[in-house]
Amino acid sequence: MSATVTFWLLGAFALAGAAAVVFSRDALRLVVGLGAFLLAVAGLYLYYGMGFLAAAQVFVYVGGVLVLVLFALLLLSRDGRGRLLAPGGFDLAAAAVAAGMAAVLALTLRDFRPPGAQAAQADLGATLLGPMLPAFELLGVLLLAALVATLVIVGGGERK
């Protein structure tokens, strides 16, 4: 019972954070909302018994991405100028699309039962360096590429 309560508490927390990101007018409130959402999701990971993932989520997202977003917002912040959201008609249409997407997702995944694990492996390290080694290596390449790309994109503008 308490498990379900924990789940819903964390879920509500995540929803609230997401709503803040989507609707807030203030840049700092957006960052706080995003942080709340990320932490809530990390909590849900823990709830599902994936401690390492939760820790990674906290480190990478909260420590990395969130700080990046914060920097970017502070660098570029011009809040209060222009409209927060798209014009009315489009706003409603986007809401419809989003609601439709949520409904479709819920309907699709509701009855989905993942196939039972053939070789239940609880050891994350063994999985990453075993069957998922190619993906793991590719991730390394991706990170490197992203790093170089960011440098080129940002630095390139300066040189021009």
């Binding site: 990971y45 018994g49 994936m50 390492f52 993932l53 990674a56 989520q57 990478v60 997202y61 990395g64 991405v65 990046l68 977003v69 993942p114 694990a117 239940a120 492996q121 609880a122 050891d123 994350l124 063994a126 999985t127 990453l128 069957p131 998922m132 993906a135 793991f136 991730l139 991706l142 990170l143 590429a145 992203a146 790093l147 790309a149 960011t150 994109i153």
Partner: peptide, 22 residues
């Protein structure tokens, strides 16, 4: 399938980080 799921999610985390940076 804890290991698999966790590994996949980890991949997503890294992807998201890269995406955010770029």
């Amino acid at each position: 399938a804890l290991g698999n799921g966790e590994a996949l999610a980890l991949v997503l985390v890294v992807l998201a980080a890269a995406e955010a940076a770029v």
